[in-house]
Design a protein around this nucleic acid. Structure first.
Lengths: 219, 219
DNA sequence: GACTCCCAACCGAACGTTCGGTCGGTACTG
DNA sequence: CAGTACCGACCGAACGTTCGGTTGGGAGTC
């Protein structure tokens, strides 16, 4: 908490610099982006950039922090779905919410790969390492109860929710960030429906009743 | 095919340069790697590098081509499994073969992300765009026959084989290339078994008999 | 209100270094 | 002696960062 309220000019400049740097880092990489480019793109001077940031890497780190804050925001639809823990009934909603996230945070997602290549993943290690634990905290109790009630089959629901989340994230990243739309040879929405069917029912035929072609059809 | 057999010195130098460049590009990125670094690492001179390659980008392109050749080599165990088209019975073998590929081609895999960031994915577009078609060519006929025979349930086997392949590839890439082992909170082998179970049987309980905890157990 | 003072915000030329790429030359091979 | 392989000094441009200097609005004083 600052004693005096900060100069609004400063906040604006920092925001402009970060926005410009995000666009450049995510499309060129860290080393390939120069401070002069960031300055030109943000409308600031090189000197001013160094007034607000101690060096180029600090700008990158601020962007990673910003991404983390954005993606953990409880107001995000995806995080509200996690909080309700209605997996796997809410798979359609989760898939849609992840598509939203990838759309909204495209350049930040690319920063992750910049980090992996140019910083050996130094800045994003914590995220991946903590992932399993966060899913356990969110879904662990609920899944135990439901498993006891016979809601699940042989597959581990904890693995399933992680696979589903990471897979949708990866799929939409390739679609939207790697610039290869339709890489499954079908519309993303169609592919998503198939992914969900696969996750719920698996590939092998179900020993019970006949082929019910689509459970979403009219009863 | 060259008219005259090439000078063996030349071939050796090119191979050394490519090997050095692969290590550097994959751990630093393209722009962050200098021709002087490649020269020092390969034991060649800068002038000699430019004798064998017209510029830095050509070295990168040669590496991408090399990756494509390696990964499409029919002698590769993974490609032999694809040729047999025994999905989904061979899921365990496929998963193991993909782990092998990721292990063997780690630095090349990272080049893909370098390409996405620093070249807008220009050099790897063809791979992703042709993916669905290649799977169709390999598995299409076989799956049609088996689907008619009732071997599959509601999920599309073509989507399933693509999901399985890409998922294993992605999972092992994060494990081995992003430097985040155990990111699912369990050993990769255990995780793989769970993935396979999920792909085969799905998450929901099967309407037939009781909970058979593990179909691999004694009959 | 007029004045001074102060300091964060801001600028851009300049520094030493490194970059991708060139080129004139030497060494070796056939 | 022709031709390929190879070398490293060299070029101009661009790099990250520094630094001396300008500016403008708020606090303090009368």
């Amino acid at each position: 908490m600052p004693i005096t309220s900060p100069d609004p000019r400063s906040e604006l400049s920092v925001a402009q610099a970060l926005e410009a740097a995000l666009g450049l880092f995510s499309t060129q990489g860290f080393r390939a982006t120069s401070m002069r480019q960031i300055a030109a793109e943000s409308g600031l001077s090189v000197g001013n950039l160094y007034h607000h940031f101690s060096n180029k890497e600090e700008i990158f780190e601020r962007l990673i922090d910003q991404y983390w804050e954005l993606v953990t925001d409880p107001r995000l639809r995806l995080n509200q779905l996690f909080a309700k823990a209605d997996f796997p009934e809410d798979l359609e909603e989760v898939a849609g919410a992840i598509e939203e996230v990838v759309d909204a945070f495209k350049p930040y997602i690319l920063l992750v790969y910049v980090d992996v290549i140019e910083f050996e993943g130094r800045h994003i290690h914590a995220f991946y390492e903590g992932m399993a634990g966060r899913f356990r905290d969110t879904y662990g109790e609920r899944f135990r109860d439901r498993q006891a009630a016979g809601d699940f089959g042989e597959a581990d629901p904890m693995v399933a929710v992680m696979v589903a989340t990471r897979w949708f994230f990866y799929f939409y990243t390739v679609e939207k960030c790697f610039g290869v739309p339709m890489h499954f040879g079908m519309k993303p929405k169609e592919a998503t429906q198939e992914f969900i069917r696969l996750l719920r029912y698996g590939l092998l035929p179900r020993p019970g009743g006949e082929h019910t072609q689509d459970p979403a059809g009219p009863a």
